[in-house]
Amino acid sequence: MTAMPRYVPSSTRLQGARWQRSSYSNGMNNCVETATLDSGPLTGLCAVRDSKNTAGPALLISPGPWESFLNSIR
């Protein structure tokens, strides 16, 4: 079994990802965007990227740790 990747070098490789930005964002592209991947070999993972560099890398995180992170900052 191969390990899942921890990141992709360019978020443009995540075809079909629907990126979302926080409702607290002020529109200045100074936050992160997230997407839940729902197709291909990365299905179910959460992707996180910098909104200032939408073609840049994206971190890939399993749903459980991502939920734990969100709960800890709420």
Rank of each mutant, 00 (worst) to 15 (best):
S39V: 09
N53F: 09
E33R: 00
A17T: 11
I73W: 09
S72Q: 13
A55V: 13
R49G: 04
N30K: 14
S72Y: 13
T34F: 02
S11A: 15
S51Q: 06
G16V: 13
S39G: 14
W66D: 03
R18F: 03
P57S: 15
F69W: 11
G64L: 15
G16C: 12
G56D: 12
L14N: 02
G40C: 08
G64C: 07
P41K: 12
W66G: 03
S10C: 15
L14A: 09
M1S: 13
R49D: 05
P65L: 08
S62E: 14
L14T: 06
Q20G: 03
Q15G: 14
L70Q: 13
S23K: 01
D38Q: 14
A17N: 01
L59C: 05
D38Y: 04
S10R: 09
P65A: 09
F69N: 08
S25C: 07
K52D: 10
R6C: 12
P9S: 05
T12C: 01
L45Q: 06
M4C: 08
V48I: 11
G16S: 10
G64Y: 08
E67S: 11
S22K: 03
G56T: 10
R13L: 12
S62F: 11
T43G: 07
D50R: 04
G40N: 03
A35W: 00
Y24R: 11
T36G: 02
N30M: 09
N30W: 07
L42D: 07
S62W: 10
A35T: 00
M4G: 04
R74C: 07
Y24I: 00
T34G: 03
R21V: 00
S51V: 00
T2R: 10
R74G: 12
L59D: 10
M4N: 03
A58V: 02
I61T: 05
N26G: 14
F69P: 03
I73S: 14
A17V: 12
A17M: 05
R49S: 03
E33S: 02
S23E: 07
S39A: 15
P65K: 06
Q20M: 06
D38A: 13
F69Q: 06
L59N: 10
P57V: 07
F69M: 07
C31Y: 00
P63E: 13
P5W: 05
N71T: 15
G44C: 04
S68Y: 11
Y24D: 06
V32W: 05
N26P: 01
G27F: 01
N71P: 04
L42Y: 07
R6W: 11
S22W: 04
L60D: 08
A47R: 02
K52I: 01
G56I: 05
P9R: 04
K52G: 10
K52P: 00
S25M: 04
E67V: 08
A35C: 01
L42R: 01
G56P: 08
P9Y: 01
S22C: 06
A55F: 10
S51H: 02
F69T: 03
N26A: 12
M28I: 12
N53W: 08
L45D: 07
S10T: 15
L60Y: 10
W19C: 06
P57E: 15
W19L: 02
W19S: 02
F69R: 02
W66V: 06
T34D: 03
P57Q: 12
R49A: 08
G40P: 03
V32K: 00
N30A: 11
I73F: 11
